[in-house]
């Protein structure tokens, strides 16, 4: 049996909206993500994909259920989540690069501040990471000078600088201009090939099929179907998966 890196048990999450009452977004999500596995999450908007992903590093706190990461139940109040977050890199739809810091500082801030590396070591590592994604010549620029695709590549290596055991991607290409999607997907592909455990929420069906070991289809707050890319894409069993895929052009 493969080793579980992340395990969730019966996750529930509701949001209190002032006008509309309570929105029950996650309705019992239990899932295992194995070490080295690449899992893509697809599904219609509002189905709970992003909320599920954001629960994994507790950016959203689930109302009930538990999350076990590397054998530690991080949903336990007594656990210092900051330590475990260092091992879970996250990439956001809107990049969220630090606008007041140079490209290099964006990468080195966390490793230096959290005592993982000296400034000199972190600088060296950051330059290596930047050259891997073709941004070495931008190291002293401010993010406002970068294109969307460049910002997202920076955000990816910023997360990698902490040497995480898993990468969480929250619709990493949804906010990009079409001509920049490719460059970001290429970086993620290379990362995935190197064996990084990844959970990817995406609307890029072709990409999900190509890189994933497994695809989860989420709808209505539950994982409606899970399986190998080929099975999900070509032989969906759940009628909702079928309906969703028939609407998505890829």
């Amino acid at each position: 049996m493969t080793e579980n890196l992340i395990e969730t048990v019966d996750l529930h999450k509701s949001f209190n909206l002032k006008e509309k009452g309570t929105l029950h977004v996650l309705k019992g999500v239990s899932e295992h993500i194995a070490k080295g596995e690449v899992v893509s999450i697809i599904g219609p908007s509002g189905g709970g994909k992003s909320t599920f992903l954001r629960c994994l590093n507790l950016l959203e706190k689930p109302d009930s259920g538990k999350i076990v990461f590397e054998g530690v139940e991080i949903t336990n109040e007594k656990v210092d989540i900051n330590l475990h977050r260092q091992k879970m890199g996250m990439v956001f739809q809107h990049f969220n690069v630090f606008n007041h810091l140079s490209v290099l500082k964006n990468i080195t801030l966390a490793p230096v501040l959290l005592g993982k590396r000296s400034q000199a070591e972190a600088d060296e590592q950051a330059r290596q990471l930047l050259s891997r994604v073709g941004l070495l010549d931008k190291q002293d620029e401010h993010p406002s000078r970068l294109s969307g695709g460049q910002k997202q590549r920076l955000a990816i290596v910023r997360a990698l600088a902490m040497e995480p055991d898993v990468m969480l991607f929250d619709e990493p290409t949804s906010a990009l201009d079409p001509e920049m999607v490719g460059e970001v997907l290429d970086v993620i592909k290379a990362l995935v090939k190197s064996g990084m455990t990844s959970v990817i929420v995406t609307h890029e069906m072709g990409f999900a099929r190509e890189v994933s070991d497994r695809i989860l289809f989420m709808d209505g707050g539950v994982i409606a179907e899970s399986g190998k890319p080929d099975d999900i894409m070509n032989h969906p069993r759940n009628p909702r998966t079928k309906e969703f895929l028939s609407k998505v052009l890829y």
Binding site: Q86, G89, N96, F98, L109, A110, L113, A155, M162
Partner: peptide
């Protein structure tokens, strides 16, 4: 200041105080 800035900082493992003062 965009909430995303805080989220990115917290996702890297910074605590609340570090996020406030550095980001």
């Amino acid at each position: 200041v965009d909430r995303g800035q805080t989220e990115a900082a917290r996702s890297l493992g910074l605590n609340g105080r570090q996020t406030m003062f550095r980001i």
